[in-house]
Nucleic acid binder design. Structure first.
Length: 469
RNA sequence: GUCCCCUUCGUCUAGAGGCCUAGGACAUUACCCUUUCACGGUAGUAACACGGGUUCGAAUCCCGUAGGGGACGCCA
């Protein structure tokens, strides 16, 4: 049997990182087993669904490198739940005809009152089935009814979850859920089941916030006489404080991470290790992940998102990337910071500086910040100003003269000149390099300064030296 | 309130009854390297939620307690 999984986001804003993790686990599972990974946009909520949000999801998946296998639909390259609304309604009608569902004429206000009363009395909040056995002749005039499932009143529903194991819930714990709204549109419960069935989904794998829904969905499968798929529920990803992970923690959507200079491979590697492990392995390539990923490695407890660990992984993958690729990735960030475009020569310079830049950065944004002074003179920060004592300024004046005599303005030549100067004056190299660093970079902290001086060139170096001295 | 799930270093986790004096990674501390900051290297601090069982033996199995999370919509 070919394994078919799906990723069903609803296009109501951004793509939460928890959703990305769910997508990743599904994608990996499909790849590992040679199955199919399908994308279904759950756009039945017309109020909140937007084409922009769909685009964000599509781009997010592409950026992370997760390709989906169902792209041939009229007018779009993903399965749209909304497009199937007639099919969903037909299923509800079928259930109605077969006596497995019924019309309920309760108004939203009436239901709200019912729940309020139940809550006040400390009773479980459930629809009490008041229209379950009433005949249509009692229907109030002018009210569009919803269709509810006539759920079993006795017995129990069992789910064998690939992660959580076998769990049983008494049917008395579940009420008659709404399948079709008064306006004829399907509810989520109906739509997922019908779509999963129609799409031939063999494994429904999602966040465990859906776990209790599963029991209700199984009732729909049974009512329709359909095979129940395998289920797997992954623990949730929490914020560092144990609460819901949100933007207030720093970043929560795929777009946020991209815009903050994280590499997709770092994010993938990090996400992979949340709630999943393969022995002591930490740095795992996508190829390796495909080979290793399976349900037996998935844990049961929720994980907290740790930005620090993500950053260290990002730093690792930055070091792995070729300089040219990094240049391309960093350039947009840098141009924003410089408020101007880089010339071709400057782009080449960025690539040359990259070996000095990349071991020092955790994000592409940090590289851009660090690289600014290679292109435009930066104002001296407080520490740099403090460092430029009269003695230090004398050093700068002397250095300007020395550097002017260099024919070959290479890293080695600059370094040799500085070392020679320090030796002559009986100064420690640091007493020469630090003022030089301050003058050239505007800061007391920078990539190796001799190389930077060489890259900036003699003229610009002279300018900065004189202006600081 | 009802139901469901979870619980190993600060964090992510390894661990499928003896291999555990509980391992790795990130973070953290110290030292080495060094023109600054990093990188890299070496060493260190740090955890089986609690209480009962079962067993010759439990982080691992069972039962309670506590704590955390989730679900209870004509949202998905």
């Amino acid at each position: 049997m070919t394994i078919v999984v799906r990723f069903p986001p609803s296009p109501t804003g951004f793509m939460h990182i928890g959703n990305a993790r769910t997508a990743l686990f599904n994608w990996l599972y499909a790849k590992h087993h040679g199955g199919k990974f399908l994308l279904r946009i759950e756009d039945t909520d017309r109020e909140r669904s937007t084409p922009e949000a769909v685009e964000v999801i599509l781009q997010g998946l592409q950026w992370l490198g997760m390709d989906w296998d169902n792209k041939n639909y009229p007018g779009r390259n993903y399965y749209s739940q909304f497009a199937e609304r007639e099919r969903h309604a037909a299923v509800a009608q079928q259930l109605l005809t077969e006596g497995k569902a019924y019309y309920c004429y309760c108004s939203p206000e009436e239901l709200e009152a019912m729940r309020a009363e139940q809550k006040a009395k400390g009773q479980p909040m459930r629809y009490d089935g008041r229209w379950r056995d009433r005949s249509a002749s009692e229907a109030p005039a002018g009210v569009n009814p919803v269709i509810r499932l006539k759920a079993p009143l006795t017995g129990e529903t069992v789910v064998r979850d690939l992660v959580l194991g076998e769990v049983t819930v008494q049917n008395t714990q579940m009420d008659d859920m709404v399948l079709l709204r008064a306006d004829g549109t399907p509810t989520y419960m109906l739509a997922v089941v019908v779509d999963d069935h129609d799409m031939g989904i063999t494994h429904v794998m999602r966040g465990d916030d859906h776990f209790t829904n599963t029991f209700r969905q199984v009732q729909i499968y049974k009512a329709m006489g359909w095979d129940v798929p395998q289920f797997a529920h992954f623990p949730m990803i929490l914020g560092p404080d144990g609460g819901k992970l949100s933007k207030r923690h720093g970043a929560a959507s795929v777009t946020d991470f991209r815009d903050q200079g994280y590499l997709p491979e770092a994010l993938i590697n990090y996400l992979l290790r949340l709630c999943w492990a393969h022995g002591d392995d930490e740095i795992i390539s996508v190829e390796q992940a495909i080979a290793w990923f399976d349900m037996d490695g998935v844990g049961k407890s929720a994980a907290r998102f740790d930005y620090t660990k993500l950053s260290s992984l990002n730093a690792h993958y930055i070091k792995q990337r070729p300089d040219r690729e990094l240049t391309q990735l960093v350039q947009p960030f840098l141009e924003t910071r410089l408020s101007r475009a880089l010339t071709a020569a400057e782009t080449a310079r960025l690539t040359q500086a990259m070996p000095d830049l990349k071991p020092r950065a955790q994000t592409l944004l940090e590289i851009a910040d660090m690289a600014k002074f290679y292109f435009d003179a930066q104002p001296l920060d407080e520490k740099a100003q403090k460092l430029l004592t009269p003695e230090a300024k004398q050093v700068l004046t002397d250095l300007a003269v020395r550097l002017d005599t260099l024919d070959d303005f290479t890293t080695e030549a600059v370094e040799a000149a500085c070392r020679g100067y320090a030796e002559e004056k009986g100064l420690k190299l640091g007493n020469v390099a630090q003022p030089l660093r301050a003058a050239i970079s505007g800061s007391t902290v920078s990539p190796p300064i001799f190389g930077a001086v060489a890259l900036i060139g003699k003229d610009e170096a002279q300018r900065r030296l004189r202006s600081a001295a």
